[in-house]
Design a protein around this nucleic acid. Structure first.
Length: 502
DNA sequence: ATGTAC
């Protein structure tokens, strides 16, 4: 058997791109890493694998704990981690959702081509920067009352539709039509609502951005046509989350769960994995609060997208409908969701890790935690919007300002291997602090401009340094693994034209 | 990620 020795943790090779930490000691299930050896190398000397192994001790975790090819260490649970916990006797863990609840990306297609913008990149990036708020702290496209925030939390993109920040087709091209019905605004603290009320329609900082891109490569003509992607077309990629409101909500519930469920926490190997037992009052409250923060993030991305339509109208002096500025899809990167999945079981009724060993299948209701992972449901799945049901849901994977990004489609194997999930990005290679020692923002900006014709405008040079192309893993390799595994299939590739960020 | 720390 081939093994991979990563210090404290030894992995066994199951097959190409599939590695397992076998169940041992206090682990409830095995752990699996979906990666090439080159990507494994990147996580062999940090806490990623230890965190993944710890996650297997969470109550009700089903089949195995999963690390995606772009995985890296996070708060308690790896970024790039997927954990499916039984909804009857399992748990919900805020650390396995992430601080930035419903951090995610959406892509808007257009009928414009690269030629339409060449020579006018600076004008476009300036107009976007002036009209889309970014950076730390307050200032949003919409600033309202606590009552407005509560309506946003309850209704998601429906609120945006009511207030002329959306059209009906936007809802049809978003997971859950942009509204989690289980949202409970009363489960969000006053403090979180206060932080959110002047941040509706704002990018934030860190790795969040708005980028105009051009389609450079098509790998699947049929699916690309269904998605409205053609070579040379301009698209817009928006990456942001739930800002201070989601962060505050995660923090509020971590503290409450640590106190209320201290007994469960004592039996876990890391305090950062704090979890509320399924069915408990606090699990219900957290789920309601998380769903509300998810709605907030969807509205955030919706307002930024709609404002982008208005900016394009100014710059190109055409109606946005005439420029065919349609939402392709919005994907969540940090969420938990109650989903039904088929799991293979053996003759004793125990869940098997490889479906070929199953004697039958059972349907389980699971809280699927995806933290830095994308839902990737395949063709035919009833939760894929009807526009994409024949080809699978779009999966959008941002790379870096120097490497570009990918559009994939949900793969046929995803439900068997990863509870219908794939990677969410390139994954960081180095910390933000390390990045600022390695790079100078001004130089990164100049290099991108001169070598790649990419126009970057940011509130802070430090942010550009932190997001230099060199701080990211090879997104090509991440996508190659996803495609080879059949969990998310390559459809198209894009390259940046201009980028605004915090 | 984040009014970049309780």
């Amino acid at each position: 058997m081939t093994t991979y020795d990563a210090g404290d943790v030894t992995l066994e090779k199951v097959r190409d791109f599939v590695w397992e930490i076998p169940k041992q000691g206090d682990m409830r299930v095995p752990a699996r890493v979906f990666a090439s050896e080159a990507l494994l190398e990147e996580i062999s000397d940090d806490k990623t694998l230890e965190q993944l192994r710890n996650a297997t001790q969470l109550p009700g975790i089903t089949k195995y704990a999963i690390c995606m090819p772009d995985g890296h260490q996070g708060y308690g649970f790896p970024v790039g981690g997927v954990g499916a916990m039984d909804a009857r006797n399992g748990c919900l863990s805020p650390g396995a959702v992430g601080y930035d609840i419903n951090c995610g990306v959406r892509m808007m297609t257009t009928s414009l081509t690269y030629d339409d913008v060449r020579g006018r990149e600076q004008e476009l990036v300036d107009a976007l920067f002036a009209n889309v708020p970014s950076g730390l702290g307050g200032g949003g496209i919409f600033e309202g009352t606590i009552g407005d925030v509560e309506a946003i939390l309850a209704d998601g993109v429906e609120w945006a539709l009511r207030n002329d920040w959306a059209v009906t087709e936007d809802l049809e091209h978003c997971e859950d039509e942009g509204k989690r019905p289980d949202a409970d605004p009363s489960a969000i603290s006053q403090k979180a609502k206060d932080r959110g009320k002047n941040q509706v329609g704002s990018l934030g900082s860190g790795n969040h951005f708005l980028e105009v891109q051009r389609v450079t490569d098509i790998y699947d003509d049929g699916v690309a046509a269904e998605y409205g992607l053609e070579p040379d077309r301009l698209v817009v990629l928006i990456h942001c989350g739930s800002r201070g409101l989601g962060h505050q909500t995660c923090n509020d519930y971590l503290r409450r769960i640590e106190k209320t469920h201290a007994g469960m926490l004592d039996r876990l190997p890391d305090k950062e994995l704090a979890a509320a037992p399924a069915g408990s009052q606090l699990a219900e409250e957290y789920y309601g609060a998380m769903c509300a923060a998810i709605n907030f993030a969807w509205v955030n991305r919706q307002l930024i997208m709609h404002r982008t339509r208005q900016v394009f109208e100014q710059v190109f002096d055409r109606d946005w409908r005439d420029m065919e500025m349609h939402l392709l899809y919005d994907v969540a990167h940090n969420i938990a969701k109650k989903e039904h999945h088929q799991v293979g079981v053996d003759a004793d009724g125990e869940v098997v890790t490889d479906d070929e060993h199953a004697v039958e299948y059972e349907t389980r209701e699971l809280y699927v935690h995806r933290k830095g992972a994308t839902r990737a449901f395949p063709a035919g799945h009833e939760e894929v919007p009807s526009a994409y049901r024949a080809v699978g849901q779009p999966v959008i994977i941002p790379g870096s300002m120097g490497a570009g990004s990918y559009v994939l489609s949900g793969g046929e194997r995803s439900l068997h291997e990863t509870f219908g999930s794939t990677a969410h990005g390139a994954g960081r290679l180095m910390s933000r602090t390390q990045a600022k020692n390695e790079y100078w923002g001004g130089d990164v900006r100049t290099d991108l401009r001169e070598q790649n014709q990419v126009y970057v405008k940011a509130q802070s040079g430090a942010t550009v340094a932190e997001e230099a192309p060199g701080v990211y893993k090879d997104v090509d390799e991440v996508v190659r693994v996803s495609d080879a595994l059949g969990i998310g299939d390559r459809v198209a590739r894009t390259f940046p034209v201009c980028n605004i960020k915090g």
